[in-house]
Design a protein around this nucleic acid. Structure first.
Length: 1144
RNA sequence: GGGCCUGUAGCUCAGCUGGCUAGAGCGCACGACUGAUAAUCGUGAGGUCGGUGGUUCAAGUCCACCUAGGCCCA
C-alpha cells in the first residue's frame, strides 16, 4: 500500500459528499457510531416527525443540520445517541390531498367512497414522498435511523396514544364540552389552535364594517337616560362581521369605561337621534369642529353632522338595559337583548361597546353564559339546535329547518331574502371577490332602516384555513377537551427547568403562552387519524375510555356475551405478543373502531364518540409511542426518556413543543426535553419568505448537488445564530466554500505535497512540544485554546460560535500565519528535528480541526481525517465520527506566547503598510526598524518574535528605543476603568487635565512615576497605573501606530541593500522560469545570466544565495546568450536582460 | 391589541458583566507576493451603532417611549 497522503488536483465537495456517503454506507459507520457507544451513558434525542406527504424544503436542511451536529458531537463525547426517525401521517392535509386526487369532497366519504377505502388511500398517499425525504436525509448527511421509523398510523403507535388518553381520562383531564372554535366551512372541519398556527394563516383582509345603532327601550332602567334627551336613544356598536348581527343577543360594555350620550343626526337618513359611545372614542365619529355647529341648522344629506354631548355615564350603570332586536329574522328563546358587562371590552377600537353574538364569538359565548343570555339558535330538520349559519357557511335554508320552529320563530318576510346565502363569498363557488358580500346587503338594509351609523371598509387581520386558503368562521362545536388549564402552574414550573435556545423563546413566547393557556381542544370530525377511544351510552350517562388493544378485546368479549356484537374481531389477537404479525390483524382506525359496540356497566349499548383526536396529540406522544411504551420498553424507559435534546423551527412553539410538554407534565410530571433549540426561518436573500408561489424557494437537492452538503451546513450554522432568521444567499455558500473549505483544503494539500516528498508518516518519534520552535508552540497553544472553547460552545448549544471559532483558526492562524511563515521549513533542507516538528505540528492541527468540525461538516472532515489517518494510523477508528472528541491540554496553552505573536502580527502588518505607503517592495531588504518600548515586558515580547517579524517584512534589524530623550512624541490618555469609579463626577475634568498635559510634563510623570493635577481646589495624585502613555511619533521617521504599538521604518536603501534586492529579484525570475518550464520542485538547474552593469555585482556577491534558493548548481554571468534558449526578463522598470535556465 | 425576536459599513454578521480611536468577512478601489498558484497577502475608502429621551463621570451596550421588519397569538 502506498504510504503517500492523497493529493487531489480538483477539490469537488459535491463529489466528496457522494464518495463519503458510499464509504459510510459500505462500512456502516452510522451503525457503528451507535453500537460502539453501547453501555455508555445515553444522550436522548427525539426527532420531530415531518409530514411525509409534503416535500422537503431548504429549511429542513437547517433544522436537521442542528439536530445532526449535536448528535454527532455527543457521540464524539462518548454518549450513545440513538436516533429514531419518524413520520407524521395523520391529519387534514393528507385527507385533503386524497380528496383532491380523487375529486371528492368530505360529504362523499362514507357515501360515494367507503371510509375504509378512503383511509386506505390516505395510508398510501401519506408516504408518497418518503423517497425524497430519504434522499435528502442521506445527501445532507443527516444521521438518523430510517430503517425502523415510528409511524403515527401504526397500530402500536396508536395503542400508546390510547394508553396516554386513558391515563388522562383516569385523571379526569379529558372532558366533553362545547365551545366556539375556528371552523373552516370550506374544509368542513374545525381547526385546532395549532392549525391556526400555520404560517400565513393570518392575513389582512378588507371587509365591510358597520357601526350599528341598537335602539334602547325606554323603561324603568333607562328612564333617567331618556330624561336627558328628546329623541330615540341608540347604543352604537361596531362590527367587522355584519353577518353576525342577526345573531346578536346582547351588547357588552366595560364597567369602568365612560360613555357619552350625544345628540346628533343619523348621517344617512338625517333623522335626529341620540347615541351612546365610549367618550374616549368619540373623536373618530364626531370631529371636534362640528361640535360648534348648531343642531337646528343641520340639513339632512350634509356631510358635516353637528353633535352635542348631553351627559356621560359609567358603563357600570348601563348593565341590564334592554334594547330592540336589530335584525328580526329569528326570535331567540330566553333572556336576550340586554346590556352586559365584560372585562374584554376595550377602547382601542370601535365604540367601546361589543356586539355580542354567543354563537360566533368565544368571548361572546363566555359572557353570555355567565349572564344567562340566550344564544340565537335555530332547530334543524333533525331536531338539533344549530347556529343561524350552517356547516357550509350559509344562512340556514328554510327547507333545512324544522317546520314548527320556522312557523313560530322565523320571520319569513325578512329572512326570505337571505336564507341559503353564504356569509363569505369565498365559500360560494358562483361568486368572485368582486361580487358584493352578504355583509354589504345587510349593511345597506340597516342604512335604510336608520340602524347604521357609519359604514366603512376596514382592513384587518383575519385567520384563514391553512389548507383551503379560505377564511375561517368562529363557530360553535361539540368537542372533547384536555383540561390543560388544570396543570398550568406545573407546566410553568417545569418549563423553567428547560434550557431554551434562545432563552427568550422559553420565557417569552412559550412561557407567556403557558400563562394564558386555555383547554386543549382535542376533537376533529374527520376520518384519517387516531380515533378517540371513548365509547358512550346513548343517554351519555356512562362512558369508557379504552387504553389498549387488550382492554378493547376483553370489552368486546363482554359485548359479544351481552349479544351486542356477533363476533370479536380481535379474537386472534394474542395479548402480550408484540410481534408485527399480531399487530397487523386489525386496524385501529375508522371504520374498524366505529363498528365496535360495547356494553356499559349497567348493560347499556355504548357507541364510540365519532371523532378523531388532534394530530398534535399524535406527535406529542412520540417520546412514548415511538417505543410502544408501556407495552414495550417499560424497564429501560429511563434510558429513553426524557429527551436531552430536541430541535425544531420556532413555529413549533405552540405545536410540537407544547404538546410534548403538556403530555409530559400531565402524565409523567416531567419535562419532555431538557435542552431545545428553536431555529428561525429560512428566508430568501432579500429577507422574504420562501414560497412556491413567489418562485424564490431554494431547492435543497439542487443546492446540495451544486455546492455539496458541507458548505451548505457550514454556511447555515456560521452565517447567523440558528434562532435568528437566515437570509439564504447562495453566494454566501460559495464564500464559505472558498474561504473555509478552500483554505483548509489548501493547507492540507500543502502538507501532503511536502510530506510525500519527505516521506513523513508520523512514524518517527514525536518531538516534545517544549522543544519545538516558538511558532509551533504558538499554534499548538492556539489549537488547545480552540479545543477548549469549541467544546464549551457545543456544550452550551452555541453551534454558531463553535463554527466561527474553528473557521477563524483555520483561515487566520493556521493558514495565513502559521503555514505562510513556515513554508521554508518544509521545502528543501535536511529532514531534521526542526522539520519533523513542523510536520507534526501541522499534522496535529489538521487532524484536530477535522475532529472539531466533524459534527458540522461531516463529509469533508471525515475525508480529511482519513486522508491523514490512513497513512499515519494514529487512530484506530475508521471514521472521524467514531473518534473521541479531542481534549485540550492546559499545559500547552501559553497565553504569553499568544500575546507575543499577536504583537508580531501587528508589527508585520504595520511595516507592510509603511512599505506600501512609500512603494518599496517587500523583496527589497531594508536595514532597520525602530520600536519605542514603554517597558521591559514589551521589549521581551518583541524580542521573542523578532526573527519572525524581520523575516516577514524583510528588514535586517530591530532597534529598541527606551530613552525618552525627547525624540519621541507621546500621548497620554486617562485609564477610565481605574479613574472612573474613583473620581465619579470629577472625571470629565480629570480627563481633560490629563489630555492637556505637555510633552515635558508627560516625561516628568514617567520619570517620577507620579503626578499631581489640580482640579479646582483639589489636588489629585496620579500614578502610572491611572494613565496610558503611548509613543505616537518619532519626528523625521516613517511611523505607524496601532493601539499601543508604534513602529518606525528606516527606508534608506544603501548600495548593499540594493544589490541584495536585485539578487532577490533574480531569484524570483529564475523560480518563475523553473515553474514555467515545468521543472519538478526537486530538479537541479544551471543558470546563465547575461551581463548588465546593474546586476553584475549583485550576482557575484550573492551567487551562493541565489544558487541555494533556486537549487542551481551553477550561477554564472556571460556576455550574451542566444535568444532561442533564453528568456528576456526585467529586473527593474528599465533593465532587461537575457537569462538561461537549464535542467541538469 | 398582546408576547417574543431583529435593526451596527453597500451586503452578511461580531461587539462578554457600560470604559479608551466600534470590529471581521464579502464586495469595491489600489497594490504586493509568486514552489500553497483554479492560490495567497497587504493597504484604503466606507458607520451621526433605526430614532428620541433618560440613568451615569462614561451608553452600540442599561431604562422608557417611538419607528421599521419578522414570527407567533388575539
Amino acid at each position: 500500500m502506498s504510504k503517500k497522503f492523497p493529493e487531489n488536483k480538483k477539490f469537488d465537495l459535491s463529489k466528496i459528499n457522494k464518495e463519503i456517503n458510499v464509504f459510510w454506507k459500505e462500512n456502516e459507520i452510522f451503525e457503528k457510531s451507535v453500537e460502539s457507544r453501547k453501555g455508555n451513558p445515553t444522550f436522548v434525542f427525539n426527532e420531530g416527525p415531518p409530514s411525509a406527504n409534503g416535500k422537503p424544503g431548504i429549511h429542513h436542511v437547517m433544522a436537521r443540520t442542528i439536530k445532526d451536529l449535536f448528535c454527532r458531537y455527543k457521540t464524539q463525547q462518548g454518549f450513545q445517541v440513538k436516533r429514531k426517525a419518524g413520520w407524521d401521517t395523520h391529519g387534514l392535509p393528507v385527507e385533503l390531498a386524497v380528496e383532491n386526487a380523487k375529486g371528492i369532497t368530505k360529504e362523499d366519504i362514507g357515501t360515494k367512497i367507503s371510509i375504509e377505502e378512503f383511509n386506505a388511500a390516505c395510508r398510501k398517499d401519506v408516504m408518497k414522498f418518503t423517497n425524497m425525504w430519504e434522499e435528502l436525509t442521506e445527501s445532507m448527511g443527516y444521521w438518523i435511523n430510517m430503517d425502523d421509523p415510528y409511524i403515527t398510523y401504526d397500530n402500536k403507535y396508536i395503542e400508546t396514544v390510547w394508553y396516554l388518553l386513558k391515563e388522562l381520562h383516569k385523571k379526569e383531564l379529558l372532558y366533553k364540552g362545547y365551545s366556539i372554535q375556528p371552523y373552516s366551512p370550506a374544509a368542513g372541519s374545525g381547526l385546532s389552535t395549532h392549525e391556526l398556527n400555520q404560517p400565513g394563516c393570518y392575513r389582512d383582509v378588507k371587509d365591510t364594517t358597520v357601526v350599528a345603532q341598537f335602539k334602547v327601550i325606554n323603561n324603568d332602567k333607562s328612564v333617567s337616560l331618556f330624561n336627558a334627551t328628546d329623541t330615540d336613544l341608540y347604543i352604537l356598536a361596531w362590527t367587522t362581521t355584519p353577518w353576525t348581527l342577526p345573531s346578536n343577543t346582547a351588547l357588552t360594555v366595560g364597567a369602568n369605561i365612560e360613555y357619552a350620550l350625544i345628540r346628533t343626526f343619523n348621517p344617512y337618513t338625517g333623522i335626529p337621534i341620540t347615541v351612546m359611545i365610549a367618550k374616549e372614542l368619540m373623536g373618530r365619529y364626531f370631529p371636534e369642529k362640528y361640535a360648534e355647529m348648531p343642531l337646528e341648522d343641520y340639513v339632512p344629506g350634509n356631510k358635516h353632522v353637528p353633535f352635542k354631548i348631553l351627559t356621560t355615564v359609567m358603563g357600570g350603570v348601563l348593565e341590564g338595559l334592554s334594547y330592540e332586536q336589530l335584525i328580526d329574522w329569528v326570535k331567540p328563546e330566553g333572556k336576550s337583548f340586554k346590556v352586559l358587562l365584560g372585562d374584554f371590552v376595550t377602547t382601542e377600537e370601535g365604540t367601546g361597546v361589543v356586539h355580542t353574538s354567543p354563537t360566533f364569538g368565544a368571548d361572546d359565548y363566555r359572557v353570555a353564559l355567565a349572564n344567562d343570555i340566550a344564544s340565537l339558535i335555530v332547530i334543524d330538520k333533525d331536531g338539533n339546535e344549530q347556529p343561524l349559519v350552517d356547516r357550509k357557511g350559509r344562512f340556514f335554508r328554510i327547507k333545512d329547518l324544522d317546520e314548527g320552529f320556522v312557523m313560530n320563530q322565523v320571520n319569513l318576510e325578512t329572512y326570505g331574502a337571505f336564507e341559503g346565502k353564504y356569509v363569505k363569498n369565498e365559500y360560494d363557488e358562483t361568486k368572485s371577490e368582486k361580487d358584493p358580500t352578504i355583509d354589504v346587503d345587510i349593511v345597506v338594509q340597516l342604512k335604510t332602516e336608520n340602524k347604521a351609523f357609519r359604514i366603512e371598509k376596514h382592513i384587518h387581520n383575519y385567520p384563514h384555513c391553512w389548507r383551503t386558503d379560505k377564511p375561517i368562521l368562529y363557530y360553535p362545536l361539540d368537542s372533547w377537551f384536555v383540561r390543560t388549564t388544570a396543570m398550568k402552574e406545573r407546566m410553568m414550573e417545569l418549563n423553567d427547568t428547560i434550557n431554551w435556545k434562545p432563552a427568550s423563546t422559553g420565557t417569552g413566547r412559550f412561557g407567556k403562552w403557558l400563562e394564558n393557556l386555555v383547554d386543549w381542544n382535542l376533537s376533529r370530525a374527520r376520518f384519517w387519524g387516531t380515533p378517540l377511544p371513548i365509547w358512550v351510552t346513548e343517554d351519555k350517562s356512562e362512558q369508557i375510555c379504552i387504553g389498549s388493544v387488550a382492554e378493547l378485546k376483553s370489552e368486546v368479549d363482554r359485548s359479544v356475551k351481552a349479544g351486542l356484537m356477533k363476533t370479536n374481531p380481535l379474537e386472534n389477537f394474542m395479548i402480550g405478543d408484540n410481534s408485527e404479525e399480531n399487530y397487523s390483524i386489525f386496524d385501529l382506525h375508522r371504520p374498524f373502531v366505529d363498528e365496535i359496540v360495547l356494553v356499559s356497566e349497567s348493560g347499556q349499548k355504548m357507541l364510540r364518540e365519532p371523532v378523531l383526536i388532534d394530530v398534535w396529540f399524535d406527535s406529542g406522544s412520540m417520546p412514548y409511542a415511538q417505543y410502544h411504551y408501556p407495552f414495550e420498553h417499560k424497564d429501560d424507559f429511563d434510558q429513553l426518556y426524557p429527551a436531552d435534546f430536541i430541535a425544531e423551527g420556532v413555529d413549533q412553539t405552540r405545536g410540537w413543543f407544547f404538546t410534548l410538554h403538556a403530555i409530559a407534565t400531565m402524565l409523567f410530571d416531567s419535562v419532555s426535553f431538557k435542552n431545545i433549540i428553536s431555529n428561525g426561518l429560512v428566508l430568501d436573500k432579500a429577507g422574504n419568505k420562501m414560497s412556491k408561489r413567489l418562485g424564490n424557494a431554494v431547492d435543497p437537492f439542487h443546492a446540495i448537488q451544486e455546492h455539496g452538503s458541507d458548505p451548505l451546513r457550514w454556511y447555515m450554522i456560521t452565517n447567523a445564530q440558528p434562532w435568528d432568521n437566515l437570509k439564504f444567499d447562495v453566494s454566501g455558500v460559495d464564500e464559505v466554500k472558498r474561504k473555509f473549505f478552500g483554505t483548509l483544503y489548501n493547507t492540507y494539500s500543502f502538507f501532503a505535497l511536502y510530506a510525500n516528498v519527505d516521506g513523513f508518516t508520523y512514524e518517527a518519534e514525536e518531538v516534545q512540544v517544549e522543544t519545538r520552535p516558538e511558532i509551533d508552540r504558538w499554534v499548538i497553544s492556539l489549537l488547545n485554546t480552540l479545543i477548549k472553547e469549541v467544546k464549551e460552545q457545543y456544550e452550551n448549544y452555541e453551534p454558531t460560535r463553535a463554527a466561527r471559532l474553528i473557521q477563524d483558526f483555520v483561515t487566520e492562524n493556521l493558514s495565513n500565519w502559521y503555514v505562510r511563515l513556515n513554508r521554508k521549513r518544509y521545502w528543501g533542507g535536511e529532514f531534521d528535528t526542526n522539520k519533523r516538528a513542523a510536520y507534526q505540528t501541522l499534522y496535529t492541527c489538521l487532524e484536530t480541526v477535522a475532529m472539531l468540525a466533524a459534527p458540522i461538516a461531516p463529509f469533508y472532515m471525515d475525508k480529511l481525517f482519513n486522508d491523514l489517518n490512513r497513512i499515519t494510523k494514529r487512530h484506530t477508528e475508521e471514521s472521524v465520527h467514531l473518534t473521541r472528541f479531542p481534549e485540550h491540554n492546559d499545559s500547552l496553552i501559553d497565553t504569553a506566547l499568544e500575546a507575543r505573536m499577536e504583537v508580531a502580527q501587528k508589527l508585520s502588518s504595520m511595516i507592510l503598510g509603511l512599505r506600501r505607503k512609500v512603494n518599496i517592495k517587500v523583496r527589497q531588504p531594508l536595514n532597520r526598524m525602530m520600536i519605542p518600548v514603554p517597558d521591559q515586558v514589551f521589549q521581551e515580547q518583541v524580542d521573542g518574535v523578532k526573527s519572525l517579524v524581520l523575516n516577514e517584512v524583510n528588514v535586517k534589524d530591530i532597534e529598541y528605543i527606551t530613552d525618552t530623550a525627547g525624540i519621541l512624541v507621546k500621548r497620554i490618555k486617562p485609564n477610565f476603568k481605574v479613574l472612573g469609579p474613583r473620581y465619579g463626577k470629577l472625571m470629565k475634568e480629570v480627563s481633560s487635565a490629563i489630555n492637556e498635559m505637555e510633552q515635558e510634563e508627560i516625561a516628568r510623570f514617567e520619570k517620577e512615576k507620579a503626578f499631581h493635577i489640580r482640579i479646582g481646589e483639589e489636588s489629585i495624585a496620579l500614578t502610572l497605573e491611572d494613565v496610558e502613555i503611548i509613543s505616537e511619533d518619532i519626528p523625521g521617521w516613517l511611523v505607524a501606530n496601532e493601539g499601543a504599538i508604534t513602529v518606525a521604518l528606516d527606508i534608506g536603501i544603501t548600495e548593499e541593500l540594493r544589490m541584495e534586492g536585485v539578487a532577490r529579484e533574480l531569484i524570483n525570475r529564475i523560480q518563475n522560469i523553473r515553474k514555467e518550464s515545468g521543472f519538478d520542485v526537486t530538479d537541479k538547474i544551471n543558470v546563465l545570466i547575461e551581463k548588465h552593469e546593474l546586476i553584475n555585482i549583485a550576482v557575484k556577491k550573492h551567487k551562493q544565495y541565489i544558487g541555494s534558493q533556486t537549487l542551481a548548481n551553477s550561477v554564472s554571468l556571460t556576455d550574451s546568450i542566444e535568444n532561442d534558449l533564453s528568456k528576456r526578463i526585467d529586473i527593474d522598470d528599465d533593465v532587461f536582460i537575457n537569462i538561461r535556465v537549464t535542467r541538469v
